[in-house]
Amino acid sequence: DEEIEKWIETLLKRNISLRVNGKDLEIGSEEFKEWVEKFIKEV
Rank of each mutant, 00 (worst) to 15 (best):
D1P: 12
D1A: 13
D1I: 15
D1Y: 14
D1K: 14
D1N: 12
D1R: 15
D1V: 11
D1G: 12
D1S: 12
D1Q: 13
E2L: 13
E2A: 12
E2V: 12
E2G: 11
E2R: 13
E2P: 11
E3A: 12
E3V: 12
E3N: 08
E3H: 13
E3R: 12
E3G: 08
E3W: 15
E3S: 14
E3C: 15
E3K: 10
I4D: 03
I4R: 03
I4S: 03
I4P: 04
I4V: 08
I4C: 15
I4Y: 09
I4T: 03
I4F: 13
I4K: 04
E5W: 15
E5A: 10
E5H: 12
E5Q: 13
E5M: 14
E5V: 13
E5C: 15
E5S: 06
E5T: 08
E5K: 15
E5D: 11
E5R: 14
E5L: 15
K6F: 09
K6N: 09
K6M: 06
K6D: 10
K6G: 06
K6H: 11
K6Q: 08
K6V: 04
K6I: 10
W7F: 09
W7C: 15
W7V: 04
W7H: 00
W7E: 02
W7D: 00
W7N: 00
W7A: 02
W7R: 01
W7L: 07
W7G: 00
W7S: 01
W7P: 00
W7M: 06
I8L: 15
I8A: 02
I8W: 12
I8Y: 05
I8P: 00
I8Q: 01
I8M: 05
I8F: 08
E9A: 01
E9Y: 02
E9V: 01
E9K: 03
E9W: 02
E9F: 00
E9S: 01
E9G: 01
E9P: 00
E9R: 00
E9D: 09
E9L: 02
E9M: 02
E9T: 02
T10Q: 13
T10W: 12
T10G: 12
T10A: 15
T10R: 13
T10V: 08
T10N: 15
T10S: 12
T10Y: 09
T10H: 14
T10I: 15
L11A: 04
L11S: 00
L11N: 01
L11M: 06
L11R: 00
L11W: 05
L11I: 11
L12T: 04
L12Q: 07
L12H: 03
L12I: 13
L12C: 06
L12M: 08
L12N: 05
L12V: 13
L12E: 04
L12K: 06
K13H: 08
K13C: 13
K13I: 09
K13T: 07
K13Y: 01
K13W: 02
K13R: 07
K13F: 03
R14S: 15
R14M: 15
R14I: 15
R14N: 15
R14Y: 11
R14E: 15
R14Q: 15
R14V: 14
R14W: 09
N15H: 11
N15L: 15
N15M: 15
N15I: 15
N15D: 09
N15V: 14
N15R: 07
N15A: 12
N15Q: 07
N15E: 09
N15G: 15
I16N: 03
I16W: 00
I16D: 05
I16Q: 05
I16G: 13
I16S: 06
I16R: 02
I16C: 15
I16K: 03
I16H: 01
I16F: 00
I16P: 06
I16V: 11
S17T: 10
S17Y: 00
S17Q: 12
S17G: 08
S17D: 06
S17V: 12
L18A: 05
L18I: 14
L18C: 13
L18H: 02
L18N: 00
L18V: 10
L18R: 01
L18Q: 01
R19L: 08
R19W: 01
R19M: 05
R19H: 09
R19D: 03
R19F: 00
V20K: 03
V20W: 02
V20T: 05
V20G: 04
V20Y: 02
V20F: 03
V20N: 03
V20A: 04
N21T: 02
N21S: 06
N21F: 06
N21Y: 03
N21K: 05
N21G: 05
N21Q: 10
G22T: 03
G22N: 05
G22H: 03
G22S: 02
G22A: 03
G22R: 01
G22D: 05
G22L: 09
G22V: 04
G22Q: 04
K23S: 07
K23H: 08
K23R: 11
K23V: 10
K23L: 08
K23N: 06
K23P: 02
K23A: 08
K23M: 09
D24W: 11
D24F: 13
D24G: 05
D24I: 13
D24P: 15
D24T: 10
D24S: 10
D24H: 08
D24N: 11
L25K: 02
L25N: 02
L25V: 09
L25I: 10
L25C: 14
L25Y: 04
L25T: 02
L25G: 04
L25H: 04
L25R: 02
L25P: 03
L25M: 08
L25F: 10
L25W: 04
E26S: 08
E26R: 13
E26G: 09
E26P: 08
E26T: 11
E26L: 13
I27M: 05
I27S: 05
I27Q: 04
I27A: 07
I27W: 09
I27H: 05
I27F: 12
I27P: 13
I27E: 03
I27K: 05
I27G: 02
G28C: 09
G28T: 07
G28P: 05
G28D: 06
G28R: 05
G28E: 05
G28F: 12
G28V: 05
G28L: 07
G28H: 03
G28N: 06
S29V: 06
S29H: 03
S29R: 03
E30L: 12
E30H: 11
E30I: 12
E30T: 11
E30V: 10
E30K: 11
E30W: 06
E30S: 11
E30Y: 07
E31T: 04
E31W: 07
E31Y: 08
E31R: 05
E31K: 14
E31C: 09
E31I: 04
E31F: 06
E31A: 11
E31H: 05
E31V: 05
E31S: 08
F32P: 00
F32Y: 07
F32M: 03
F32L: 07
F32H: 01
F32A: 02
F32K: 00
F32E: 00
K33C: 15
K33Y: 15
K33F: 14
K33L: 14
K33N: 11
K33P: 01
K33V: 06
E34K: 12
E34I: 11
E34P: 00
E34L: 10
E34W: 08
E34D: 12
E34M: 10
E34G: 07
E34F: 09
E34V: 08
E34C: 08
W35R: 00
W35F: 09
W35M: 04
W35E: 01
W35C: 07
W35V: 03
W35A: 05
W35D: 00
W35K: 02
W35Y: 05
V36H: 01
V36S: 00
V36T: 02
V36E: 01
V36Q: 01
V36C: 14
E37W: 05
E37S: 07
E37H: 06
E37A: 10
E37Q: 08
E37L: 07
E37R: 10
E37M: 06
E37D: 11
K38H: 10
K38Q: 13
K38V: 07
K38D: 09
K38L: 07
K38F: 07
K38M: 09
K38R: 12
K38S: 07
F39N: 03
F39C: 09
F39P: 00
F39R: 03
F39D: 00
F39L: 13
F39A: 05
F39S: 02
I40T: 04
I40Q: 03
I40V: 08
I40A: 05
I40R: 04
I40S: 02
I40Y: 10
I40F: 13
I40L: 14
I40E: 02
K41I: 06
K41T: 08
K41F: 04
K41P: 01
K41S: 06
K41L: 05
K41N: 07
K41R: 08
K41Q: 09
K41Y: 04
K41V: 05
K41M: 06
E42T: 11
E42Y: 13
E42H: 11
E42V: 11
E42P: 03
E42A: 11
E42I: 13
E42G: 09
E42F: 11
E42Q: 11
E42C: 15
E42W: 14
V43D: 04
V43A: 10
V43P: 03
V43H: 12
V43T: 08
V43F: 14
V43I: 14
V43Q: 07
V43E: 05
